[in-house]
Amino acid sequence: MTINIYRHCLMGVLRREFSRFWQQRNRFATAVIRPVLWLFVFATGFGVTAENNTAESLDAVASYKAYLVPGLCGMVILFNSMQCALSMAYDRELGSMRALLVSPLPRPFLLSAKLFAICTVSMMQVFVFLAIATLAGTGPSWLGYLASMPTMIMTGFMLGAAGLLIATWIKQLENFAGVMNFVIFPVFFLSSALYPLAPMRDASPWLYWACQINPFTHAVEAIRRSFSLQWDPLTFGITAGTAVFLAVLATTSFRPQRTRILPGPGT
């Protein structure tokens, strides 16, 4: 098969993901409104409750908002990845995934194309959120945008691959709601997205170490540093390494017969 066949397939999968995304515009609104609420409601409330309404506390709110933005970028990517995983589980239950699986192209390639599409949609959402944050004066500089691109894309691949892995391993859609709760909330709250880890070390060592072993923490830290035009090989390396590991696992371990792609025995 020529490279063009793969290219046409990749573009087709990408176009389909965009078309679906366009059909579900409320999903896009939700994806943007969620972090905006966190940024303008939670961050303000959290900052003000910490201090009296003094000039210092207002500064603290502003700096907490700036602190929160990288974590919220991670949140946008995390939610979109899990949303795409859910949509893939629906595709499987409703039958449209069978069209993908009878393609002559190798399944690892098809799933990688799907992953690429998920990541691209995540990037669209995250940069719309960043534009809003910048307009509100809490986003990164233009250079920060550019510098964060590689980290952001790598985070998209890491979380997209995690979603793909969950969607390909889960047997029934009913189980998926549980997985969402057991994945999204622990991954987000057991990270440095909302609070810095250093003060936590003494207050709650187990929480500190739980956050440390969470790759999402390192993705958020890598994004945070890239906003300040800093390069941290450790956090970026952990994010990239996890992305590659999960992507290989997700694209090579998929077995249709393990899922309910066909009716059960006796058919």
Binding site: M1, H8, C9, V13, R15, R16, A99, S103, L105
Partner: peptide
């Protein structure tokens, strides 16, 4: 869109 998607899965150009 469905038919284009299927065509792409078989590597056909637009």
């Amino acid at each position: 869109q469905n038919l284009h998607y299927h065509a792409a899965l078989h590597g056909l150009s637009r």
